[in-house]
Computed example of a mutant assay.
Amino acid sequence: MTGTRDILVEVHEYIEDGYRPVVDYNGWRVAVLNYHPELLPENLQDFQRHDETDEVFILVCGRCLLLTGDGTTTVGTIHAMDLEPGKVYNVKRGVWHSHTLSRDARVMIVENTDTGEHNSPRCMLTEEHKRRIVELAAEHGYTET
Rank of each mutant, 00 (worst) to 15 (best):
M1D: 04
M1V: 09
T4W: 14
D6L: 10
I7D: 06
I7F: 10
L8V: 09
E10C: 06
V11G: 00
V11S: 11
V11W: 06
G18K: 10
G18C: 02
G18H: 06
P21H: 00
V22G: 01
V22R: 03
V23Y: 05
D24Y: 02
D24S: 05
N26F: 09
G27W: 03
W28F: 15
V30K: 08
V30S: 02
V32D: 00
L33G: 01
N34W: 02
Y35M: 05
Y35I: 01
H36T: 04
H36S: 12
P37K: 15
P37T: 11
P37A: 13
E38W: 03
E38F: 00
L40H: 09
P41R: 12
P41L: 12
E42C: 05
N43H: 13
N43V: 00
Q45V: 02
D46L: 03
D46M: 05
D46I: 00
F47S: 01
F47D: 07
Q48D: 00
H50G: 02
D51M: 10
D51S: 04
E52I: 04
E52G: 05
E52D: 08
E52F: 03
D54K: 02
E55K: 04
V56T: 14
I58A: 04
L59Q: 01
L59P: 00
L59R: 05
G62Q: 08
G62T: 01
R63V: 02
L65K: 02
L65A: 05
L66T: 04
L66M: 15
T68I: 07
T68E: 08
D70C: 11
D70R: 14
G71Y: 04
G71Q: 05
T73G: 07
T74V: 10
T74H: 12
V75E: 03
G76A: 11
G76K: 15
H79S: 12
A80K: 03
M81P: 00
D82A: 09
D82V: 04
D82E: 10
L83G: 08
E84I: 08
E84R: 11
G86E: 08
G86S: 08
G86L: 07
K87N: 11
Y89N: 12
N90Y: 00
N90F: 03
V91I: 13
V91C: 02
K92Q: 13
G94R: 12
W96T: 00
W96D: 04
H99N: 15
T100H: 09
T100K: 14
S102V: 10
V107H: 13
V107A: 14
I109D: 04
V110D: 07
V110P: 01
E111C: 13
N112V: 12
T115Q: 05
T115W: 05
G116Y: 10
H118E: 11
N119R: 14
N119Y: 09
S120N: 08
P121I: 03
R122P: 00
R122L: 14
R122Q: 10
M124Q: 13
L125P: 05
T126M: 12
T126F: 14
E128L: 12
K130L: 13
K130S: 06
R131D: 09
R132W: 01
R132K: 15
I133A: 12
I133D: 03
A138K: 12
E139Q: 15
H140M: 08
H140D: 07
G141E: 06
G141I: 13
E144S: 08
E144Q: 14
T145R: 15
T145C: 04
